[in-house]
Simulated assay, not measured.
Amino acid sequence: MQSVIKNGQVLADDWLLLAKEAQLADLPENTDCIVPLALWQAEREALKRRPGALAIWLDADEEVEAIAADLPNFALIALNFPAFTDGRAYSSAALLRQRYGFKGEIRAIGDVLRDQLFAMRRCGFDAFAIRADKDPHDALKGLADFSESYQSAAEQPLPLFRRRALSGRG
């Protein structure tokens, strides 16, 4: 079973991530599943009726706007990084948090490495499925690589100068 970093710890992943070409018949009964966007679009009503929690994953070239009206149906949204150098999912996470107010879990999947975690969290990710050939316990340390951030972000809407002014240290 794969691990996931969530809430500052490495945990066993209880979700089944379906392949991009998955069909409705591929879903096991009573299992929490992360389905690809194409399957959601083709089988929306059947997926909403099945037992178990439902989540969706978007590839880097799939727009958040395609699921905006459906967000209440998902406990989790996974955003795929097809390559370490493809950063489109950062924008998707920020849109989900800031424009659409999504409060559920946003998980990074795919080519996810330690060096990305701090920036991912700032954009709105709160769970990370580290690439299978990397140690998730080592990657967890990446969340503490920096002690402070100057700029505002999804996870901290106030820039440092405003936080300091509010604390009286300004």
Rank of each mutant, 00 (worst) to 15 (best):
L158G: 05
Q23G: 13
M1E: 08
I67Y: 05
G142V: 00
A165G: 05
I77P: 06
I5A: 05
I5W: 04
A69V: 02
E45G: 07
S92G: 11
Q41R: 10
L140H: 02
E65V: 01
D26M: 02
V112P: 12
A165L: 13
I56D: 03
I34Q: 12
I77R: 09
A94G: 13
L143R: 01
V10E: 00
L117K: 07
E148R: 13
L16W: 10
I34Y: 11
G87C: 09
E63Y: 08
S92T: 10
D61A: 14
R88W: 06
Q9V: 03
K48P: 00
A53E: 13
D70E: 02
D59Q: 14
Q9M: 06
F84C: 11
K134I: 08
S92C: 12
S3D: 13
R169T: 14
R164E: 10
S92R: 05
E148P: 01
V10T: 02
I109K: 09
D135M: 01
Q151K: 11
A68K: 09
A154H: 07
E45K: 12
Q98I: 14
A89M: 14
A42G: 01
D111M: 06
Q116W: 10
A69S: 08
A129I: 11
Y150L: 13
A83D: 13
A127E: 02
F146D: 01
Q156C: 12
I130T: 05
Q98N: 14
I130K: 04
Y150C: 03
G87P: 07
Y90T: 04
A154Q: 06
A108V: 06
F102T: 00
K20V: 07
V35G: 07
L158K: 14
S3Q: 15
L95N: 01
F102A: 02
M1C: 06
K134C: 14
G168Q: 02
P28M: 12
R99P: 04
D126Y: 06
L16D: 11
M1P: 11
M120I: 09
D135S: 05
F128G: 05
L16P: 11
R44N: 03
N80F: 12
D14H: 13
L17A: 06
L58T: 02
T85F: 01
W15H: 06
F84W: 13
Q156S: 14
W40V: 00
L54W: 07
L18H: 12
G170F: 02
L11A: 10
W40F: 04
R122V: 05
R107K: 13
L18V: 03
R131M: 10
I67L: 07
D138P: 01
A42Y: 02
I77F: 07
L79Q: 05
Q98W: 08
K141Q: 14
L158V: 05
E155Y: 11
A153N: 09
D26W: 06
A78Y: 10
C33G: 10
M120Q: 14
D70P: 00
A108S: 12
G170T: 00
A69T: 04
R107G: 09
G124S: 09
Q41C: 00
D145C: 12
L16S: 13
G104P: 04
L16R: 14
L79A: 08
H137D: 11
G101T: 06
S92M: 14
E29T: 15
L18R: 08
I109F: 10
S3I: 00
L39V: 00
M120H: 10
L113H: 11
G124H: 03
E155W: 12
A153E: 04
L117G: 02
K103W: 04
L160S: 04
G8K: 00
I77G: 05
I34D: 09
R121G: 08
